[in-house]
Amino acid sequence: MTVLDVRHLRKHFPLRQGLLGRTSGYVKAVDDVSFSIEAGETLSLVGESGCGKTTTSRCILRAIKPSSGEILFRTANGEKIDVASLDKKQLRPLRRQMQMIFQDPFSSLNPRMTISEIIGEPLLVNGMTGTAERNKRVADLLELVQLPSAYLNRFPHAFSGGQRQRIGIARALALNPSLIVADEPVSALDVSVQAQIVNLMLDLQDRLGLAYLFVAHDLSVVKHVSHRVAVMYVGRIVEIAPTTSLFNTPGHPYTEALLSAVPVPDPRRRAQRIVLEGDVADPSDPPSGCHFHPRCQYATDQCRTETPELREIAPGHSVRCLRAEELSLLGVPTGA
């Protein structure tokens, strides 16, 4: 059952110049992105800073309005609604079904509210006005994220980063959403705490059948949480595949380079890595043809002129590369 179906999503930010704010061009932050997420599934959106992964997630939550495209969301009663076309008022009843986990556990909790007020807020504003009923639900939610309910009256400053992240998760779960957008939920945490939150997210998904859109840059974490992974480069998805295929047999040279760049915590595996030349392309002035061609070691003249389409090269495995079939790229073998 598809929870979210994103079709041809675009977000172009106008570049303004001069006193009158004349539009001189566009930053194509998100450029024709399509994917879908099933119930109980985690799709990770990975890529380097500026690739458009965060903009994509904010469009889906409608924190920003997309320029074009459809965001079809399956509501609790089975309707499919295009979130992209709704206005603020129409959005409100849908909000409760899509929630978010934030990156920064410090700025995501209001320091002036107690834990019970923070977790109870979504309940309160959505009509659960009885205090006793709400407190009961908040206590249940705390238990769900493995925090003692004795902490109800404490303020956020009394908690560590990991505990705050649990509180943020409890708040996101308060309204029984079907989709959770997690924007780098563990990247601000210490390594020893990261593992706890990753495991908690996996447990909650199994118990509640949540769909996750997991936005991250750390491929190691991504491997531990995802069913499928989409790799973005300069506003476009360049590869989307089930986790194992993507890591073992990447189809796009950029994915190969990303995988190769991840440091492996084993000094005996100091492999010869592929070090990309140069920097990520400027999304306001991307290179012609395939955006990746200036940094690609396999690029041909054709790559400079022809824009590749996302094509399926194996079941569920799509790649945006002209030479996808002929290249045999290096992945990271599981468990080796």
Binding site: L61, A63, R92, P93, R95, R96, M98, Q99, M100, F102, Q103, D104, S107, S108, L109, N110, E121, P122, V125, N126, G168, R171, A174, L175
Partner: peptide, 17 residues
Amino acid sequence: EEDFITAAELAGASQMR
């Protein structure tokens, strides 16, 4: 720009609240 404001918006809190 604070995340906790975004969180309140996502929770469906009104502008007044």
